[in-house]
Design a protein around this nucleic acid. Structure first.
Lengths: 200, 200
DNA sequence: AAGATTGGTTAACAGTGTTAACTAGACGAA
DNA sequence: TTCGTCTAGTTAACACTGTTAACCAATCTT
């Protein structure tokens, strides 16, 4: 067969990602994935220990993609504020460009995350460290005022995540313009962390 | 029996709320609820059409409690900024005081929410209208600068929700002090919306 | 050619939401 | 007082779920 027969493992991940995004995570069943892949349900267990393991693999994959995307876009040679803004916008851009990947990171809630091995979070942490370093530079240059850059980094991320998830989960009032909401929120988050200089 | 035999419907809601908070929402089963209530699983269907309906009832209940809590605490006679801060802090206070209720509002994700009748959101909207009016007052008094108070209200709420859900879902780095994180984030959200007056 | 490994299969178990059909008791009307 | 109806529950069954155990048919190694 000249068909693009990519290995079953990858095929399962692809299908799962799609089903997850289209039908939600309670609708995701091993049998459903298997049927879509044209294979028996138990075959999935040749590549994944269980459903959790499959989900965790998807999460890891998405975290990796998000991290790479951020790290690629930030230009270490540009100014601190530009870097700061770049990280934040890259994060949001990724979320809206790949909602199925972004959602996966948070879709699977605590029930399943409690079983998620903690050391796997290290990859995600690296992106924080980047943001922390930028904030530290900003503080040194007198552009920001933060006695605790790590807390600040997490606060930024939390606020940003709130904005993104509200949009992606379509919980926005329909009187509100989506793009306007996003832009305003991001601006507020960014400006709120810069030292306030009164410009008429 | 002199036992507090509250009506089965209420008993089911109580038990569901607890199971939901303790074991997560995939672990919530009709049979599990029934066993806890000492009743057969199908009895639940005498009071709720299906599992969705049960969940939606819990959501409605929580939204109502949250709204009442906010509206009670805000003092219409106090200054605009005090009212503004009061709404925000009431929201967060409720979330941390009744995490099982707050979580329910957002725990059930889009899969089930898509089936949630839209008119039921009206109650939730009322709290936004309150915040919108406060912002409008703030703008009139020159304390805030927002060309679109509705968008601003949703932005505030989204950022706040992000902060709260990060804490409640225990996604916070363990090097970070929880209370410090909450306080800093709330301060940032509040101050970010006030007109920037440079005070040395 | 023989043995082991790879990549799948089918059958089965226990648990899920939900429906249909039933039953025991309470209440009102004849 | 008995008949019928309503209420609040029951049991049995269906179609689905994740997962395990046992099996099989190629393919690779020696």
């Amino acid at each position: 067969m000249s068909e693009k027969e990519l290995p079953l493992r990858e095929k399962i991940l692809d299908i799962s990602r799609h089903l997850l995004y289209n039908d939600g995570h309670t609708a995701l069943s091993m049998r459903g994935i298997a049927k879509e892949a044209g294979v028996s349900a138990t075959s999935i267990y040749l590549y994944f220990d269980n459903k959790d393991h499959l989900l965790h693999t998807l999460i890891e994959e998405s975290v990796e993609a998000l991290s790479v995307s951020i790290e690629q876009k930030v230009d270490a040679n540009s100014g601190v504020i530009a870097q700061f803004e770049s990280v934040i916008r890259s994060y949001a851009d990724f979320a809206f460009a790949h909602p199925e990947k972004y959602q996966i990171i948070y879709m699977v809630k605590s029930e399943s995350m409690a079983r998620y091995p903690k050391e796997k979070f290290r990859r995600a942490r690296r992106s924080y460290e980047l943001l922390v370093k930028i904030i530290e530079s900003g503080v040194r240059e007198g552009l920001m005022e933060e006695e605790d850059p790590l807390t600040a980094a997490y606060s930024i991320w939390a606020q940003l995540h709130g904005v993104i998830s509200v949009v992606l989960n379509q919980r926005l009032d329909n009187r509100i313009n989506r793009e306007h909401f996003i832009e305003k929120s991001i601006q507020h988050i960014i400006e709120g962390f810069l030292v306030r200089t009164k410009v008429s």
